[in-house]
């Protein structure tokens, strides 16, 4: 029997303390290539801390983070990006004085040295995310929903194998949410892009994810399909509340 190939992303027994606060305490999950997985839980559950440990911002105090069987622990954020992980920031970090297109060009320069190629890729990504007509504006002039879009565009331009989305739908109108969900589904279908998203907008979680991982107070609560998770009493108890959706 040949060993099964390692999953795209493996998280096992992840632990992070901040001065005695157990921000993340034993979180484990795996993501197969081509999957869309949502990470949900109440505020302060440790979701963004998990992302930061995957992305190389924090080094975990314990546990494993592996991309295609290769450990990411100890790598700097730029090295994690070059290994194939793109991420967005919950608190957006646009390059304010650069144009929207230049922002995305920086992302595309992850895989090419040629500005013309990077620019072509940037335009493609901006088209996809509906920012094409704003590409000449300075990024600081964008509205918050557009800035979130720009975060996604920049990360996508790096051509990641795995995309980490940190609350990119927050603050979007329902129609905008639906459009972004559709964009991610198409990317997933057409390019096989694997996505892990942190999201509070359940409308997006339900429509987009194939699997949901729930954490609370840094600890795993449960894992399952979106339909299973929203009926799970433990999830209702800690996060969604008793009201039926």
């Amino acid at each position: 029997m040949s060993p099964s190939p390692p999953p795209l992303l493996l998280i096992e027994g992840l632990v992070k303390h901040f001065r005695g606060l157990r921000a993340v305490d034993g979180v484990s999950f795996r993501v197969e290539a081509g999957e869309i997985v949502a990470l949900i839980g109440p505020n302060g559950a440790g979701k963004t801390t998990v992302f930061n440990m995957i992305a190389g911002v924090f080094e975990p105090d314990g546990g494993r983070v592996e991309l295609e069987g290769r450990s990411l622990i100890g790598l700097r954020p730029d090295q994690v990006c070059r290994a194939g992980v793109g991420r967005t920031f919950q608190l957006v970090k646009p390059f304010g004085n650069l144009s929207v297109e230049e922002n995305v060009v920086v992302g595309a320069l992850r895989w090419t040295h040629e500005i013309t190629k990077a620019r072509a890729q940037a335009r493609e990504v901006l088209d996809l995310l509906g920012l094409a007509d704003k590409r000449r504006q300075p990024a600081r002039s964008l509205t918050l929903p557009d800035r979130k879009c720009l975060e996604v565009a920049r990360a996508l331009a790096t051509k990641p194998k795995l995309l980490l989305l940190d609350e990119v739908m927050a603050g979007l109108r329902p129609a905008e949410t639906d459009r972004m969900v559709e964009t991610f589904r198409r990317l997933n279908r057409e390019t096989g892009l694997t996505i892990v998203l942190i999201e509070h907008v359940m409308r997006a979680v339900m429509a987009l994810s194939q699997r949901v991982v729930v954490i609370n107070s840094g600890q795993p609560v449960c894992e399952g399909t979106p339909e299973e998770v929203v009926r799970d009493p433990r999830v209702l108890d800690c996060y969604l509340g008793e009201e039926p959706l």
């Binding site: 992305a55 911002v57 700097r76 954020p77 730029d78 990006c81 070059r82 793109g86 991420r87 920031f89 970090k93 646009p94 390059f95 304010g96 004085n97 650069l98 230049e102 920086v106 992302g107 992850r110 920049r154 990360a155 790096t158």
Partner: peptide
Amino acid sequence: LAVREDQDAAAALGI
């Protein structure tokens, strides 16, 4: 330019 504007974002893009 990316580093000048935001070092964390630059690092997240592989810089």
